[in-house]
Structure formats: structure tokens, C-alpha cells
Amino acid sequence: MIIELLTYLGRFILLLLLQLLVIKNIELSTFINPYIYPLFILTLPVSTKPWQVVLISFITGFIVDSFYIPFGLHMAATTFMGYLRIFYLKFAANKEDFDAKLAPNLSRKGPVWFVLYCLVLIFAHHTVLFYLEVYSFSEFFRTFSRVFASSIASVALITLGQVLFYKAAQRK
């Protein structure tokens, strides 16, 4: 239990550092603005209680928010994504997953399931994040293309990371 907790804490810190030190500095274009830290919420075990997921999402958002201006964007977006995850998993995960306390990742659930799972939830996260940042609907389509391009970039980065890390782990 303690080891599991420490693994998750370590993963969270790793993702946060990757986000702040590497990904934040890749400034390709104003339309491509990827965020990978939501992966932490996505890989929580399927059997995590709903209220725990919501609370963990909120705390994650709070910590990420302390490194960005204005305060509150990531909190709102991540809490929303965490809540949505509960419903997505009700629909997409089966009973064995719940019994096995499965943590969703690429190698356990297969590429199609995992990419779709990431795409739906990351898209929801980015939608809330980018529209709240603009704080109005006056640039609706421009913001939509930002959400779209950034979601694709985020999911691509997350999938790449999964392929590199979990394929290596399987080979051992």
C-alpha cells in the first residue's frame, strides 16, 4: 500500500517536472500547447472511489496552478476531467478491470482503447482550460482549433511515453 502510494507520488512529481521544465519550453506555435500532467489522473486505478478521483484531480490542478498564471484554470479543468472519467470508465471498463484494480495503460488495455480514452478525456480537459483562459466566446473557432491541435499533441506525447516506458517494462 505504502509502496503503491509512493509510486503514484513519484509519477506525479516526474510528470509535473516534465511538464514545467521540458514541455512548457517547447514553444512551437500558439495553437499547439500540450499538457501531459492529466496522465496522472488517467492512470489512477479503475477501482479508485469516485469521490477520491474528484478530490485527487482537484489537488493535482491546485498544485499545477501554483506554477501558472492566472490561478484556477488547471483546477477547474482537471476537476472536470476527473469527474468525467468516472462516467467514461462506467461505460468503457468491464467488471474484470474493476476486480483486478487495473490502472489503465497502453499495454494492459491495448492501443485503440487507451488512445480513445486519452483523447476523450484530454479533449474535455483542454476544452475547459482553453475556453476559460480566453474567458469569452468571442474567438470561438480560433480557440476550438487550439483545443483540437493541442489535444492531438498531448495525446501523441502521452502515447509516445507509454510506448517507450511500458514496452521497455514488458521486455524485462
Binding site: 469516485p50 469521490w51 474528484v54 478530490l55 482537484f58 490542478g61 492566472p70 490561478f71 484556477g72 484554470l73 483546477m75 477547474a76 476537476t79 472536470f80 476527473g82 469527474y83 468516472i86 476559460l132 474567458y135
Partner: peptide
């Protein structure tokens, strides 16, 4: 209770964000 938890946390985030956008500074921020 999950929905209520979600709702109150989301509302809290939006209020903080609104305050930041409106007043630009609050002490704990």
C-alpha cells in the same frame, strides 16, 4: 455526494479564477 463534491470544487475553482481575472490579486494567490 460525488456530484456535490465535484460541484463545490468546480465552483471554488471558478470563483478563484473570476477573482483573479477581476481584481488581479488576492493575498493568498
Amino acid at each position: 455526494y460525488t456530484f456535490l463534491l465535484f460541484f463545490s470544487l468546480e465552483l471554488f475553482s471558478l470563483i478563484i479564477l473570476y477573482q483573479y481575472n477581476t481584481y488581479q490579486r488576492a493575498s493568498f494567490l
